[in-house]
Simulated assay, not measured.
Amino acid sequence: MRRYSRITGTGSYLPPRRLTNADLAAELAARGVETSDEWIVERTGIRARHFAAPDVTSSDLGLEAARHAIEAADCRPQDIDLIIVATSTPDMVFPSTACILQAKLGIHGCPAFDVQAVCSGFVYALTLADSMIQTGLANRALVVGAEVFSRILDFSDRTTCVLFGDGAGAVVLEASDRPGILASDLHADGKHVGILCVPGNVSGGKVIGDPLLKMDGQAVFRLAVGVLESAARAVLEKAGRTDADIDLLIPHQANLRIMQSTARKLKLPGDKLFVTVDQQGNTSAASIPLALDAAVRGGQAKPGDTLLLEGVGGGFTWGAVLLDL
């Protein structure tokens, strides 16, 4: 009998500190940087975001999201036999944030590792977990996206620092005799490294290069719109489904205009596009699982629905997953 994987629980966590655009504009003004609620909303659709406290790490946020997902799946931490964390803001150079999270959950012995595909990271991680379950290497996986992007923002650059936020989302993915994950499609093109990156590293105890985020927004926008449609078409074709079969589109929450463009290309009405970017900003690898949990708990994503998840990020990476909930 063929093995499949299904999502059996979702969870999320946002740090308590919430900054509206007006709050952030006031903080930036004190640094001599001008912006406004109108300027941010017009270009991005973002109205607020959450920032973690200075001593809070990605694994701390991931821990809360993981606990909620495990509870929703009606299992125990000890039942998890695979942990994958998607993050671009790990707790340490090494070990992996997944291993740190594993210890915080009190889980021992199962494989745990990080995936670094920036904003596409959760789609990559979910695809890996699905493959490992299908081949019998795992039975119940915890897949987490967790980020503290506020740590790598240049608050003198209003074109980037207003975009991002912190948070974590998680799912429990279990072996099943019924298809859940229907198809995945992953890509990368390293020739576009320079349009979205943090061009720094640690050497000899010092930061070499620039440890803050750099982005060519127009170049990212142009690439994102095209590749998101192609990835969506690919997973629909692989699964033998059509645009009309999509009950809810849950894209990476980066920019409302990019998300709406993708929905239009797929001929999806506005109520089939799930949006959290207005209240959470771009949380990179955490954005898709954060939105998925919000959709599940809010009743917009229901058992039996067909969901399209898709992400695009630095690397340049992109991909999509089509699944039945």
Results as ranks from 00 to 15, higher is better:
2 R>P: 14
3 R>E: 05
8 T>R: 10
8 T>F: 01
12 S>Q: 14
14 L>S: 06
21 N>W: 01
27 E>G: 00
28 L>M: 09
29 A>K: 14
34 E>K: 15
37 D>L: 02
39 W>C: 01
39 W>S: 08
43 R>L: 11
46 I>Q: 13
60 D>Q: 11
67 R>Q: 15
69 A>E: 09
70 I>F: 02
76 R>W: 04
80 I>G: 00
81 D>H: 04
84 I>L: 15
88 S>Y: 03
91 D>V: 10
92 M>F: 14
94 F>A: 05
100 I>H: 10
101 L>T: 10
103 A>M: 08
109 G>H: 13
114 D>T: 06
118 V>R: 06
119 C>P: 02
121 G>K: 14
127 T>Y: 00
128 L>V: 14
129 A>L: 09
147 E>D: 14
150 S>K: 12
153 L>C: 09
156 S>D: 11
156 S>F: 06
162 V>L: 08
163 L>C: 10
167 G>S: 03
171 V>D: 04
171 V>N: 07
172 V>R: 11
173 L>E: 05
179 P>S: 08
184 S>L: 03
186 L>H: 00
189 D>T: 03
191 K>P: 02
192 H>W: 14
193 V>A: 15
193 V>C: 13
206 K>P: 01
207 V>N: 08
247 D>K: 07
249 L>E: 02
251 P>I: 01
256 L>Y: 08
256 L>K: 06
262 T>W: 03
264 R>F: 06
286 A>H: 11
288 I>H: 09
288 I>G: 12
293 D>M: 00
308 L>N: 09
311 G>A: 06
314 G>R: 07
321 V>N: 06
323 L>V: 03
